[in-house]
Design a protein around this nucleic acid. Structure first.
Lengths: 262, 262
DNA sequence: TAACCGGAAATGGTTAGACCTTTTCATGCG
DNA sequence: CGCATGAAAAGGTCTAACCATTTCCGGTTA
């Protein structure tokens, strides 16, 4: 079980630059960059891999844990440690951004704006590149929104799917990932928010507007529609926030979270 | 040394939901979100904190390591573990994105496009909001570029600083962080690339064009100028890549890295 | 013959205790 | 007063063992 084709793992020199576990991270990262570890692959058992790399098991585990924290590896007790499978759109973990938001006191306005910029960018690209299938999906989601005007939870599902479809139609997985990262943070409390039917109707109209611009291959129109859509969503959310703040002291810190229909 | 004002640390229930170390991560994360741990703060020593949380030291270390991996904590041997200080623009670690690029086979074209979208967004915002000081800084960096046409290394420094100034002038730290994240990946091999003087002159002109649009408070002009600037940079890089590929078989995998003047 | 169930083996998760290396800081000497 | 030295503090690493979960093979049964 030791030396079959595992010679790709090289023992770590004692006279390394950083700490031992950092070196372990570098080793594993290099192997991923070189393509020796591919998505879905299983790493050797920790006990074996530790021997192969010439480090102790806790040190190896420290390295694995660091890579797991950034979403590259995933360990399952009893099963093994795997390189994360690349099924569907790749996604970056949003918790780093979330923590940074707390640490630096990001305002919701800042996050809304970031999301708006990203959504406008992907909408513009989608207008240039969306395939027929993708446009059909968008249309279906818009129809789903109009069909769920009295069911906010269902509406939100179509809402999210519409935006994801647009993002994937942009053909740029990096922008898609970044957009999802930001949107995830704003989503957290969105689902908890009570939505009025009039808001939903307006929101659905805006989504249809975005869809039509994309179908017309009109990037600037799509960008403008998306801008207005998100601006209205932000205004609606701020309105609800003020209402909700009435009677209860506003929590000055961590201005995260968002609501309203998007 | 145990119970001074450290009662904010609560013992972890044995009947928790996930693994013990995950619970440690949640605990620390919650404390950050609640503002009990602020940037620059030092955590209690591992041995003490482990006792306070009711877990073993390796388990605590695992949690700390996970948060360190995403750039929230930082440990210094002999000194202690600190919440990362928020000096200057907050920065997200780019290694997750870098690893994802390798795993999913992102093309450089995709990365260039992502960077272009982000840079255009911040340029547009900067045109609306840049302060006099920020515009002065941009101007200085442009001047620095023209003064370093025969010193590619120096030129690159002004180049990078110009873009960072524009980003910070956008007033949106999230977009700035995301932009830096993408730009960092593209930067890696940029510095290694040989640049011809004519490229640098053109690049400096483009930067000046961007600066002027921002000074004129012309968001669309700034966006357009930035778009053209980065499109030219990408074309120049692709040209150099082709030249460099002559005589040596192209490496089909991992199409990362970039070069040329930006 | 095929489906199901049980248990052994594999594998990650956790703990304990010890020791090493680096940093910090106070003490004492010049 | 200032610098050097050394003790204390704190993170980094290792060994060894045990626990919890998953997997999978093999036997049993319908």
């Amino acid at each position: 079980m030791t030396a079959l084709n595992n010679d790709i793992f090289k023992t770590i020199d004692p006279d390394r630059r950083g700490t031992t576990s950092e070196e372990v991270i570098s080793q594993l990262r290099e192997m991923i960059h070189r393509g020796e570890l591919r998505p879905g692959d299983r790493l050797p058992p920790e006990r074996d891999l530790a021997k192969l790399l010439g480090v102790s098991r806790p040190t190896l585990r420290a390295g694995i844990r660091s890579l797991a924290a950034v979403g590259v590896l995933q360990s399952r007790q009893g099963a093994g440690t795997f390189v994360v499978k690349a099924d569907g759109p790749p996604s970056l973990d949003s918790s780093p951004l979330r923590l940074m938001a707390s640490l630096h006191g990001f305002t919701s306005a800042e996050m809304f704006e970031a999301r708006q910029s990203l959504e406008m960018a992907v909408a513009g690209l989608a207008a240039e590149r969306a395939t027929g299938d993708q446009m059909a999906s968008m249309s279906e989601e818009v129809a789903g929104m109009f069909a769920s005007l009295d069911d906010p939870e269902q509406f939100l599902i179509h809402d999210v799917r519409f935006h994801q479809t647009v993002a994937s139609a942009s053909g740029n997985r990096i922008l898609t990932s970044l957009m999802n990262m930001v949107a995830t943070i704003l989503f957290d409390t969105r689902i908890k928010t009570v939505k009025r039917a009039t808001d939903l109707k307006e929101s659905a109209e805006m989504h249809r507007h975005v869809y039509r611009s994309i179908r017309e291959r009109d990037p600037e129109g799509a960008r403008a529609a998306m801008r207005e859509h998100l601006e209205r969503a932000q205004r609606a959310w701020e309105l609800e926030k003020e209402v909700a703040a009435d009677g209860s002291p506003a929590d000055g810190s961590n201005g995260n979270g968002a609501g309203g229909a998007h």
